[in-house]
Design a protein around this nucleic acid. Sequence first.
DNA 1: TCAATTATGTACCGATCGGTACAAAATAAC
DNA 2: GTTATTTTGTACCGATCGGTACATAATTGA
Lengths: 207, 207
Amino acid sequence: MSVGRKRSFDKSEALDKAMRLFWENGYSGTSVSDLTQQLGINKPSLYAAFGNKEKLFQSALERYMACYAAPLLEQLSRPDEQPLAERIRRYMSNIIELVSDKTSPKGCLFVKSSCEAGGTGVPEEVTQALQSMGLDTRQVLTSLFEQEQSRGRLPDTAEPNVMADYLMSVLYGISVLARQGRGKDELMTAAEFAISSLLPGQTSGEH
Amino acid sequence: MSVGRKRSFDKSEALDKAMRLFWENGYSGTSVSDLTQQLGINKPSLYAAFGNKEKLFQSALERYMACYAAPLLEQLSRPDEQPLAERIRRYMSNIIELVSDKTSPKGCLFVKSSCEAGGTGVPEEVTQALQSMGLDTRQVLTSLFEQEQSRGRLPDTAEPNVMADYLMSVLYGISVLARQGRGKDELMTAAEFAISSLLPGQTSGEH
DNA sequence: TCAATTATGTACCGATCGGTACAAAATAAC
DNA sequence: GTTATTTTGTACCGATCGGTACATAATTGA
């Protein structure tokens, strides 16, 4: 065992609470005092455990992506017998559930942070991390469509990276709508519309 | 004429500069000192002219919507001989030009503010104003599609409000992508894809 | 038991936050 | 010119910002 006094709080639980605070109020909108109050710890404990506000935000963002975004994307990319349209529907449904969940802040922390980033209020390294994460997601989606195309499940004329950008724009937009307070049903209807657009003929809900 | 010393700065120019600052750094990320410095005036002048930070933001947001968003939406809604798909393409193209313009902050102030809103960092009245603006836009788009439908240019099975939500989600998402630094060409390609999805058969760029 | 190590609570740091009091300067009506 | 009115610059307000010094408490290895 390590020497010294033991930490009196659960670091993982604290990080989860911090993530939700940033999710709710953003980077600039969340103060260190807000964090220590919500986490139930004092400042020195916070700084000892997480470095500083910027590092804590980076950790919270990574936790968000690892716990929420990545599993859904992984499930989508996993080989599956179901048709692509059905898998994308499930993917979008899961995301809508996430961004309009009643027990979590509305919207998506990544989308919110991406919008906040780029200015002087957000550290440059955070902005770069967000940009990198976006490109990573694009690459995963592009690979997915390329894979489907190589297996003959998509027309040879389809452009995987365009489809990826398109899907991301719809998902990002849905997160913004959710943040604006739109209901789950409306978002799902819009998502269904996007799916039948993305993969015409592969879905039951034509328009 | 009104009595008293004359204002030494152009209020409209000052509001424009304030708008761009909020556009770049957000509500929480923009301090009153940032504003007075950029506007080249002192605090008492700012408070006398615009009330306080919250009111100044409201004014900047209204200016943004009136100068940027509203004209584009008005052009889209105006009776036009061109087919709907072409008008929507022009609309999206204009918006992409706006959100990826090199002389303005990346992205859309409205989308950025909508994401920032809802937490404790943004006044409640601002959040409500943003929500209201979003619903207004939805109504305009819905009316547009209803009008086209009543003139037989859209199938009877089309659902105008769903199409409006879908279009908004794509546009919002494109604004987020632009904020992340994506190039104009990529955004336009994704937009073309969305149009050919929204109005199949009315466009030359099928997929 | 004792020393080394780590976490904790308090109390504080300089800087900045949003906002204002106040007097001097400028303008118009009289 | 005088007076009433408005804007200006300076200087300041209490509160909060992100971050830390320091002494104490707790824990492990020796």
